[in-house]
């Protein structure tokens, strides 16, 4: 019976046409599963540089069991001093009851530091800068001036999967940037929602490296800014594990 129904269906809908209905159609997968997130940016408090490569982050105390890396992994590690953490997707803070947690940053030669993070209903994304100081260093932390403001530029990122050309990823992650070839550390650009980010921190004529940290990996793409909109592609293997 099923075969008959299928045959009839294919006859009725299988009109005489050359093109397959699904030809060149990609399967688009969003990564905005963890809705309440915080970008933890750990720097050397005195230099402003990214935390040392062997710095670690541990979620401790209240709600630690419900905190995940943005890729859904329980393992949370810093990549060039950055990681995005967030609440289990089944949890949501309310206006009356925020969800609090604490992260502990440790690095050899540095004073271990703890920072409380509060996830609130009003703020789905937040930046949590943490400056760590060398043991015994009492110098005041460096103050990094805000980046200059330019014209608006829209960046559309598409994640691709190795060996799966039929799949596209629409990443929802924090983006950092720095001038290509520059020695300064990556700075926060903004939150990319479903692959799109608009920013006014990019100068015309400059070439930038854009970085996202996802699943313990750093993904970088470079682009010279000459116009107001760009479509960029990132190979995001860590987002393709399905």
């Amino acid at each position: 019976m099923r075969a008959i129904r299928s045959s009839i269906f294919m006859m009725v809908l299988g009109f005489i046409a050359c093109k397959k209905p699904t030809e060149n159609i990609k399967i688009v997968v969003d990564t905005d599963i963890i809705k309440y997130t915080a970008l933890v940016q750990v720097t050397d408090a005195q230099t402003g540089n990214a935390a040392p490569a062997n710095a670690t982050i541990t979620v401790v105390g209240e709600n630690a069991a419900n905190i995940y890396e943005i890729s859904g992994k329980k393992e949370i590690s810093l990549v060039q001093g950055m990681v995005t953490i967030g609440l289990h997707p089944n949890l949501a803070p309310t206006a009356e009851v925020p969800i609090n947690t604490t992260v502990e940053i440790a690095a050899p030669g540095y004073t271990t530091q703890r920072k409380n993070i509060s996830f609130t209903a009003a703020q789905r994304q937040q930046i949590v800068p943490i400056g760590i100081s060398r043991v015994g260093n009492t110098a005041p932390p460096i103050v990094v001036p805000p980046p200059p403001v330019y014209q608006d530029v829209s960046l559309n990122f598409t994640g691709t999967c190795p060996n799966r050309p039929d799949i596209e990823i629409r990443p929802s992650v924090y983006v950092s940037f720095k001038k290509t070839g520059g020695t300064e550390p990556y700075r926060y650009l903004g939150y990319m929602d479903k692959g799109n980010i608009s920013t006014n921190l990019l100068a015309l004529g400059e070439t930038y490296d854009f970085q996202i940290v996802y699943g313990g990996q750093s993904y970088i793409v470079a682009q010279k800014i000459d116009q107001s909109s760009y479509n960029l592609t990132l190979n995001m293997a860590e987002a393709c594990n399905f």
Binding site: M11, F15, C18, P21, T22, I27, V29, D30, I33, R170
Partner: peptide, 26 residues
């Protein structure tokens, strides 16, 4: 699309193009 597949609405233009000649109903 819904859920994590919401972004598939971006494929509408391609689908429309693929299906535009499906007009003969035998």
């Amino acid at each position: 699309g819904t859920g994590i597949l919401t972004g598939n609405s971006s494929q509408t233009e391609q689908f429309q193009s693929n299906i535009k000649n499906y007009r003969w109903l035998p």
